[in-house]
């Protein structure tokens, strides 16, 4: 019930700068892939290209649902940004219902689905409140609820918890993990946090900048993913391995 994504030779220039230069990447249906790399390495551009927010200069991105090719617009993609991007004059509930409203879903039905999404993100009690009345963590939960209210086949996450404090971030990491286990959508996460990438992803792709290329693919094998596993030897070994690759990528590109 989810989509696979094939990126082939994606190329994108901003003026003189080649941000993406023939990068290829496969994400299987239901897989959780994290993209990690130094700032400006093109990971966000790649994610935005997958979501149709950025047009590629060359290359292609193909989406497959149950083996059949689909268009990006029909692939059931949903975005979660670093900023919650909630409309300040709308209650949490009305913000979550927005994608359904714009798609022409009837009022009663969209309110029901929005309440359900808020419930799944465990912020049902915030439904009637305005964004400025919510904490940063709750705003992000509402934004996540809006991202999942359309029952997406693939969730594209652009540093979604980057602006939150560490404790809230851990909470939301666990929420996202539980959500992914239940609903098995395909997920691509752009992050700067190595522990977050290891905690959430089946696979971590380490990117080197200018132009973006994959310098290491780390398959995460953890017996369990919970609070305790964050300090396990296996967890730390993964973080170390990615950290080394990242370090080489940065030094290599500077030379």
């Amino acid at each position: 019930m989810s989509v696979s994504i094939e990126i082939r030779n994606a190329t994108k220039r901003f003026g003189e700068v080649r941000v993406l230069d023939g990068i290829s990447l496969d994400v299987a249906a239901g897989e959780f892939v994290a993209l990690i790399g130094p700032s400006g390495c093109g990971k966000t551009t790649l994610l935005r290209a997958v979501g149709g927010l950025e047009a590629l200069d060359a290359g292609s991105i193909a989406y497959r649902a149950d083996g059949a090719a689909t268009a990006a617009s029909a692939a059931g993609l949903s975005f979660c940004f670093q900023e919650p991007r909630l409309l300040p004059w709308r209650s949490a509930l009305d913000n979550v219902a927005l994608p359904l409203e714009l798609a022409g879903v009837a009022t009663a039905e969209r309110v029901r689905q929005a309440r359900e999404a808020l419930d799944r993100m465990r912020v049902a009690d915030a439904a009637e409140r305005l964004p400025h009345e919510l904490s940063g963590g709750m705003r992000m939960r509402v934004a996540m609820a809006r991202a999942i209210v359309t029952k997406p086949q693939a969730l594209l996450l652009d540093e979604p918890f980057g602006a939150l404090d560490e404790v809230t971030r851990y909470e939301l990491d666990e929420e996202l993990l539980a959500l992914h286990r239940r609903e098995r959508f395909t997920a691509i996460l752009v992050t700067h946090s190595l522990p977050e990438a290891v905690f959430l992803a089946d696979r971590v792709e380490v990117l080197a900048p200018r132009p973006a290329r994959v310098v290491k693919t780390e398959r995460v094998a953890l017996a369990a993913r919970d609070d305790a596993s964050r300090t396990s030897d296996a967890f730390n070994a993964h973080v170390r391995s990615i950290s080394d690759a990242l370090h080489r990528a940065i030094c290599g590109s500077a030379a």
Binding site: L53, R85, W89, L102
Partner: peptide, 26 residues
């Protein structure tokens, strides 16, 4: 209107009318 919110509306394939009534006017 917040350019980031505009992008959100673009992402949801909002029509010109929807963007006007639900984003720009408020």
């Amino acid at each position: 209107a917040d350019p980031l919110a505009r992008e959100l509306f673009r992402l949801y394939n909002a029509s010109r009318w929807q963007r006007w009534t639900r984003l720009e006017l408020p």
